[in-house]
Amino acid sequence: MLDMPFIRIIEGLNHTLENVIAPEVESTLAKGQLFAVVEILKQISGRFDHKHELIVEDIQVSQQMLTTLIETFTAAAIDIPDEFQANTETIDATAMSGEQLRQQRDRLEIIVSAALDLLNSHRAEIVDAQKVEHTVFMQLGKNLFRNMLLVSQHRFDKISQLDKED
């Protein structure tokens, strides 16, 4: 979900705030404040974008994985689609918008997945396919760890309203 454009996330939040939550709020002060939140979110939504450097790192990692897989296929004399090689070329991230970068990242992930499926379907012809899988997995590792650190401590008990005294 957090891969979505922020403008879309804020639209969704505002829809629920305005149509589901506001009608249940009895205090006029609280209701007014809630609409102020909706208004602020709406005004700032068009000015947000994902951090480019995170998406660029994701793209670089996918290209690394793809390169490793192409080397493996080449060594085992397995034919590969042209798009594998074409997508290892360095991109000019500075010339791309956030939306274009996200699309490029998603496209690359689809290609890497297809390459992993190809590897899996040729396991018998590849020397130690699992070692290759572990190598590409380790290439992914840094970004997975980075993303995990970006997650804040959640407070689902508050959402479930079990702490009734609060």
Binding site: M1, L2, T16, N19, V20, N147, M148, V151
Partner: peptide
Amino acid sequence: TEDLKPAAFGSILDLAYA
């Protein structure tokens, strides 16, 4: 859905990946 619980749950998908 207008319920934000699934959205809150989905926002920590990176923990499941980890």
